[in-house]
């Protein structure tokens, strides 16, 4: 069990909630990870803003940095109007970031290594874009698929490409996050497994285990970077897609 790199992605069902429409619902380890993520994000932000001092302390500085970071990203890609989506974008960023970091603790589940969770995150963004786009612009939102300055003859072709690219957005958005987290954790587990299996071979094995150990330490640092980077990329792309909902004629 310990050396199976796939084991960490198993969904463990803690207790059943019942059946509905032929589907089984359980409280699982990924649900626990998501709940813990939400609790950590909420607890951190509540604690950080509890004093609300003019000169921030350490916690408050971190919370303000996160706020400014997401706010400036959103403002630069979607403009001042985009700030109406700030709670959503900030929730997404904090959720993905903390879920990724949460998975870096040994024995804890990485919720973002489940394609269905990342797909749900991506669909949250895409549904917001589509629903808000139609609410705000009506059928003018479809102008998103007809770029300006394109000759009439090639409009059908270009529009078809635009539609395909729009439909592939949730897939690329979810697969990017899922793939990065999955691959990172598998690699980490494989190298850590080398350390254990080589060390069990005796004195020479212990000497030989140093190399994969160094690799594991390096990969752990890299994984922390990836955990942040993927949360950032997801946020940036979300901001760009939200910009389409605000200004479909591009």
């Amino acid at each position: 069990m310990a050396n199976d790199p796939i084991h960490q992605f198993h969904i463990q069902e803690y207790f059943p909630l019942g059946q509905f429409g032929g589907m089984e619902f359980h409280f699982t380890n990924s649900a626990f990870a998501m709940g813990a993520t939400v609790a950590i994000v909420t607890g951190f932000l509540l604690l950080a803003t509890s004093k609300a001092s003019l000169v921030p302390g350490r916690l408050q500085s971190v919370a303000e940095m996160a706020y400014e970071f997401v706010a400036s990203t959103l403002r630069s890609s979607a403009g001042k109007e985009g700030m109406r989506f700030f709670p959503l974008v900030f929730s997404l960023f904090m959720f993905i970031l903390v879920a990724n970091f949460f998975g870096m603790f040994p024995y804890f589940m990485t919720a973002t290594s489940q394609i269905i969770v990342t797909f749900a995150l991506a669909m949250t963004v895409m549904l917001t874009v589509v629903v808000y786009g139609f609410m705000r612009h009506g059928f003018g939102f479809l102008g998103l698929f007809v770029p300006h300055g394109v000759p009439m003859a090639v409009v059908p072709l270009v529009s078809a490409i635009e539609v395909i690219s729009f439909l592939s957005r949730p897939i690329s958005l979810s697969v990017r996050l899922f793939g990065n987290m999955l691959a990172g954790h598998i690699t980490l587990k494989v190298f850590a497994g080398f350390v254990a299996s080589m060390a069990s071979l005796g004195a020479i094995g212990v000497g030989g285990a140093i190399l994969p150990l160094v690799m594991t330490v390096g990969l752990t640092a890299l994984e922390f970077l990836v955990a942040f980077l993927q949360a950032y990329i997801f946020t940036v792309l979300t901001c760009m897609y939200l910009n389409d909902a605000l200004h479909p004629g591009h």
Partner: peptide, 13 residues
């Protein structure tokens, strides 16, 4: 395992 995960995602997110 998808339905449970979607359900909990919707609840927690």
């Amino acid at each position: 395992k998808y339905p449970s995960q979607i359900l909990w995602y919707v609840i927690f997110f």
